[in-house]
Write a protein that binds this DNA or RNA. Structure first.
Lengths: 231, 231
DNA sequence: CGTAGCCTTGAAGGTGATCAATGTTTGTGG
DNA sequence: CCACAAACATTGATCACCTTCAAGGCTACG
């Protein structure tokens, strides 16, 4: 793991929802011992089953949260992008063990914060805990929405993943996912197989709904994808 | 909705994990305005989409948390049993709307607490917020585990539901679920159909793994069910 | 230049959804 | 207390969707 020990990127932190309404001094107190970690494509931030001694915030890029299934396959629980908080929930435990792995998608950056920091400092900011609860609520709501699609046809599930990722990134037109996402990863995120995902996305490419260039997926006709969701 | 305004059932509350280590006085302060609500089978505690002005704790019985899917079907997100906290997460929002419905399974009891209570009193107990985070962690972990079974065969999914519900209830041998659970509900919990669930559970009944008497499911050979999960 | 990661296509087959019909139990109102 | 409705459980037949297995091509990278 590349440990780039830099100063806190305060301008970046000030923009985060999490720290909105806080002074620079407060943020510095909350992020004491904070280190910015730069990860490369497919690099692992932490592994399922290891001791959870840090949490943190995604600064740039993206990470996938994975969990090993009973077979060898790694199921993708969800994706986190800038502003998302990672592993905060398990910090409240006495002896936390990471229940999932976190893996970089493309080059990404992460603000790593120590557990003691959370237990000592963050705990005494009720407003902050409320904000964390709101972030958690979003995650849970998303998991609920996914369950809602349990018995939906495959194309709806794929559409849902793409739309959800688009919504996380208020990017510009034409809409392109700002990190590499393979068909296999999509399959692992919706509980399907690589081949099935390929068949559907190939169709979409042929009719011009989407377009893939060098592992980056670009959505050309969002309306069409949204239509699939509505049926 | 039957509103049985009773005094706080302090002995019951003292046993809850949530309030462990707290004095009677503290609990009374935390549960000010608390009302015990008794619900009957299939009665709705609150509905998806309505204003969230209360949260609470399950005292006895069980409730199912449901969400409407794109079709008419109601998907079951999960089940809550005594000691579980309900809707606490959305209380941290400015103008909460319930994202799910909560429906009683058999006769149950619920301690209803007002939102203002949470925002004013509970907020200032960091230890309590941490305990809530730990309860949430369990819920999320369970959702993750479910995702892990996404592409598993149907019998594994059904086995997982039964085992999960057994674990929530440290009941005695032979293991019986202490609330009515229909095949259709199991189907809605795992994203399948009533008929498919029936076919598998009928097989299990024939070989003596389980037994159903008056809507109550009894697991005769837990080992066998656990074995199904391991394959 | 070979390997690894990713994408593609085809053929075969099975699991589980769908539709339909019926039996059984529970609950409710006259 | 009976009759009827609603909820729940069951069984069979059919078939679509998606998985599985297999093979091959493309691109990046050491």
């Amino acid at each position: 793991m590349t440990n780039l020990h830099t100063n806190l990127p305060l301008p970046e932190l000030l923009k985060l929802d999490l720290f909105s309404g806080m002074s620079k001094l407060q943020i510095q107190e909350l992020c004491i011992d904070g280190k910015v970690i730069a990860t490369t494509h497919r690099e692992c931030l932490f592994s399922e089953g290891t001791v959870g001694d840090f949490f943190g915030v995604v600064l740039s890029g993206a990470y996938k949260i994975t969990k090993a299934s009973s077979r060898g396959e790694d199921v993708i629980i969800n994706f986190v992008t800038p502003g998302d908080i990672v592993a905060a929930l398990i910090m409240a435990q006495a002896n936390p063990i990471y229940p999932v792995s976190v893996i970089s998608m493309g080059p990404s950056r992460f603000l790593r914060l120590s557990r003691s920091n959370y237990v000592n400092t963050w705990k005494s900011f009720p407003g902050l805990l409320f904000k964390i609860q709101n972030l958690l609520l979003k995650k849970i709501t998303h998991l609920h929405d996914q369950k809602t699609l349990y018995n939906a046809p495959l194309n709806q599930k794929i559409a849902a993943v793409l739309i959800a990722l688009l919504e996380k990134n208020a990017s510009n037109n034409p809409l392109e996912l700002p990190f590499p996402l393979t068909r296999k990863e999509i399959a692992n995120a919706i509980g399907s197989t690589e081949e099935s995902v390929i068949r559907i996305m190939s169709d979409w490419t042929k009719v011009g709904f989407i377009q893939t260039t060098e592992q980056f997926i670009r959505i050309i006709q969002v309306e069409k994808i949204l239509e699939i969701l509505k049926v």
